[in-house]
Every structure is written in structure tokens, then in C-alpha cells.
């Protein structure tokens, strides 16, 4: 028998329904007019202040990014000129070509893709059932186990890298992609975030599905995951950015280039020429482009997820 359950509509934020205007506007008196013009002035000041603060924030966050892009297209003497040059005379690709010449970017990008993809896949295979179990089942030791999961978020990676390195050496996993994927697939943060989302799903929906003989897997697949889509996208994006940009663990857990990722490769450009930052910035551009592309596509979901889950 096939159980078909239509995915329910996600709960919406408390909306305000605007009905048609039912009463005429009150008459405008001179004092009310003065008060209104004061209010308009105050509103204008607030708008201007908001624009100024927003521009400052854009400068703070986008400034370094602009500097990176600018330097990547400059010559060494332009990049190091005094006073600084805030534009480029001509778009030059020399730094990108030099970066590709010096470091095998294709190889490291492929490794980054494998490690990031593997971590994402492994993480969802682990955190979805784990979060579902913590959210929907009552079993002995649940709270203690959940506490243990949360505690993993408090342990700094620098504390465990050496024992894990020794363990990998014994297991023959050094310099493999698996060594960079395994430790990150049981994400405490992901389990926590997804559990919170699963807990918001009304019990009646689950009960209705069970009455229709839906298996737990079906409930997860047909009810939980569609409802948690924004959260899943958010976790996916956070994992993607974190794994793609991860420098420390690929650095300390690899001793050959076999599984090394892009963030470990880019500083090698600096080691080859420590004076001019132009080629390093070109390498950084190559590193961040995939993140920007993913962000552009997933931006709507991220905003929605953070609004929905209440995570600020």
C-alpha cells in the first residue's frame, strides 16, 4: 500500500490582514498639521541616519572584499603604491594566470568539492535522523545524549587535532578525503538547529501520518523535510562555507597534496612571493567565487530560515 500524504503548508509568521478602510479620515487641524510636519522631519532624519549607517556597514563589510578584487587586478607596483590606488587602469588577468601557473588550482578545487560535498551528504544522513529522534521520541537518556551533542560544540578543534591525527595514522586514513569528512558529519549545531525546527511541527500532523500507516522514514521525507527546508538550506550553506573555507584541519591532517583543499593551497602563493599581494589576492578570488555563487542562489532561503527559526 502506498501512503500519500500531501506536504502541508509551512506555518506562516503572524500576519496582519488589512481590510478595506471602514471609516473616513478625521479633519486636519493646524496643531495636527504642525505635529505631522514634525513627524515627517523626524522620519526624514531617521531615514538619512539609516542610510548613513547602512553605507558605513557596507563600507566595513564590502571594503575588504573590494580591496581583494582590486588588488587581484593590479600590478605589484600599483598594489603597493603610496598613496593607495583605489581603481585599476586596465583589467589584467596576469595575476590569475600566475596563480594557476604556481599552484595546481584544478586539483585543489576538486579536492575542496569532494570534501565539501562529502561532508554535506554525510551530515544530512546523520543529523536528520538524529534531530528527528531527539525532537519526536522519548527514550531513556535522551536529554543526557542531547547534552553530549551540544557539548561537542564547546570543544575547540585545536584540542582534538593531535589525537585524531594519531588515530588516522593508525587507521591508514591520513591524506584521504575521508579524513577531512568524517569528523564533521555529526554536526552538533546542525542537530540542534534541526531539532528545534522539528519540534515546531504540530503533533497532529505526525499522528495523522501514522494513522495512514506512514513509516518513520516516510514521515521524515514527506512531512519533516519539506517543512524544514529553510533550516536545511541554512545548515547546508553554513556547512558549505565552513568546509570550503576550512584551513586548520586540512592543514594539520594532510602531509601530501593528495587530499589538500584550496584554503591550504592559497597561502602557498604567498610563500612563493611574500612581497607582492597581487597573486595571493587572485588566489583568494578563486577561493571565494563558489561561495558567492552559492550565496546568490540560496540567499532567499537563508533569510527565510533565520526568520523562521528565530535564530538571530
Amino acid at each position: 500500500m502506498t501512503t500519500t500524504i500531501a506536504p502541508p503548508t509551512p506555518p506562516t509568521a503572524a500576519g496582519s490582514s488589512r481590510g478595506p478602510a471602514s471609516s473616513p479620515p478625521p479633519p486636519v487641524t493646524p496643531s495636527a498639521r504642525t505635529a505631522r510636519s514634525g513627524t515627517i522631519l523626524w522620519k526624514a532624519v531617521r531615514v538619512i541616519a539609516r542610510i548613513v549607517v547602512s553605507l558605513l556597514l557596507v563600507l566595513v563589510f564590502a571594503g575588504p572584499f573590494y580591496w581583494m578584487v582590486l588588488t587581484a587586478f593590479q600590478t605589484a607596483s600599483e598594489a603597493l603604491s603610496i598613496p593607495p590606488q583605489f581603481w585599476v587602469d586596465a583589467v589584467r588577468w596576469d595575476n590569475f594566470i600566475a596563480a594557476f601557473d604556481r599552484v595546481n588550482f584544478g586539483h585543489f578545487a576538486l579536492n575542496s568539492a569532494i570534501v565539501t560535498g562529502g561532508t554535506l551528504l554525510g551530515q544530512f544522513l546523520i543529523i536528520v535522523p538524529a534531530a528527528y529522534a531527539f525532537a519526536r521520541f522519548h527514550f531513556k537518556g535522551r536529554d543526557v545524549l542531547f547534552g553530549v551533542v551540544l557539548a561537542t560544540m564547546m570543544i575547540p578543534g585545536q584540542l582534538i587535532f593531535l589525537p585524531v591525527f594519531a588515530m588516522y595514522a593508525k587507521m591508514g586514513l591520513l591524506n584521504t578525503h575521508l579524513s577531512l569528512i568524517l569528523p564533521f558529519i555529526a554536526s552538533g549545531f546542525g542537530i540542534f538547529l534541526l531539532r528545534q525546527t522539528f519540534m515546531r511541527v504540530p503533533d497532529s500532523l505526525i499522528e495523522a501520518a501514522r494513522l495512514d500507516h506512514a513509516s518513520e522514514f516516510t514521515i521524515i521525507r514527506r512531512i519533516m523535510l519539506p517543512l524544514a527546508k529553510p533550516t536545511i538550506v541554512t545548515i547546508g550553506l553554513i556547512t558549505f562555507i565552513g568546509t570550503w573555507n576550512n584551513y586548520f584541519f586540512p592543514l594539520v591532517w594532510t602531509t601530501t597534496d593528495a587530499a589538500r583543499t584550496l584554503p591550504v593551497a592559497v597561502p602557498r602563493l604567498e610563500a612563493l612571493d611574500e612581497i607582492a599581494p597581487t597573486i595571493v589576492m587572485a588566489g583568494n578570488m578563486l577561493l571565494v567565487v563558489p561561495i558567492l555563487i552559492v550565496f546568490l542562489f540560496a540567499r532567499r532561503h537563508i533569510i527565510s530560515a533565520f526568520t523562521y527559526t528565530g535564530v538571530k
Partner: peptide
Amino acid sequence: VTANYQGDYVETEQKVNAAALADTLP
């Protein structure tokens, strides 16, 4: 001989020490 780059001096020292513990020295 196979050469494998490990990073700057401090990073290399850390990796050598880790490799000595894990018995994976070059």
C-alpha cells in the same frame, strides 16, 4: 625522493611533532 610542502616554519614544526607522535615522520 618525493617532496611534500608543509607550510611555513611554525606549521612544519607542528606537523613534524604530530608526525613524531603518530610515527609518520618523513
